[in-house]
Design a protein around this nucleic acid. Structure first.
Lengths: 133, 133
DNA sequence: ATACCTGCAAACTATTTGCACTTGA
DNA sequence: TCAAGTGCAAATAGTTTGCAGGTAT
């Protein structure tokens, strides 16, 4: 077991993810943190996001275009906008875990899975409608 | 409708994805193509992979660490190895599309979704077992 | 003929890392 | 004390793009 310390920076990063319920990117978290402590570096933000995700204290959401972070740590799926990259909870309840089936089929030792829906968010739909005049 | 041409390069890229049934990355495709025509550039490989995927002639598989390409164009899910990045078909049949539910829940105009399972491939499992001596 | 396409190299985005210094326990 | 953590800048990986010249139709 590795010994972990409670640093000011780590606390700030955790606080950012808790406060921002918008599925922030690493950069969004950096902006929040940087506002409160301009000395914190982006590298440190990444290091702490990875640590917190590893510990299961936050959830990492993989999307094309980069990772986002979620204060909700229960398994749930997400939608990502193919135009602006915004992320939202999918709001569908998860079907039974099929991880075991995949394990049998492929020989991979399966540790989990994630589903990402792709679409266009309401804001970008409005923008498109405005353009199509 | 854009006019598309049949170039030697585009044919080679399509051929590579058809021939390689290993869910190749852009680099793998580049290696295959480069072997038959050393003048073809990586940029061209990317441009053609994107075009072919857009046309639905090949499937783009998003994984953490980069895209992979699949000659199978029917909707199906994948497993990715968290150690070496190898990709395989998950081999599970897809549950009914819940895209519409997500659309209702979120307001996003949903165009599709993809599920990626994470795990450790048989080869990497063997490597781990050998180390743990 | 002329749009589409290509090679090449540079640019870009997201993320990681080496190193010397700081700091929590 | 001293290993874990940090800041900074440089490095890396994956992918895109501007431009000048090439080529399919």
């Amino acid at each position: 077991m590795v010994q972990r310390r409670n640093t000011r920076q780590r606390t700030l990063v955790a606080e950012a993810v808790s406060a921002l319920h918008t599925h922030p990117s690493a950069n969004d978290v950096y902006a929040y943190v940087h506002e409160r402590d301009p000395h914190v570096s982006l590298g440190t933000v990444y290091r702490n996001l990875n640590l917190l995700a590893e510990e299961g204290k936050i959830l990492e959401v993989h999307t094309p275009g980069g990772s986002h972070y979620d204060f909700r740590t229960d398994d749930h799926d997400h939608v990502v906008c193919t135009h602006c990259g915004s992320v939202a909870d999918a709001g569908v309840s998860r079907h039974r875990s099929i991880d075991d089936d995949v394990e049998v089929n492929t020989g991979y030792r399966v540790t989990g899975h994630f589903t990402v829906f792709e679409g266009v968010c309401p804001a970008c739909q409005a923008k498109q409608a405005a353009q199509a005049s």
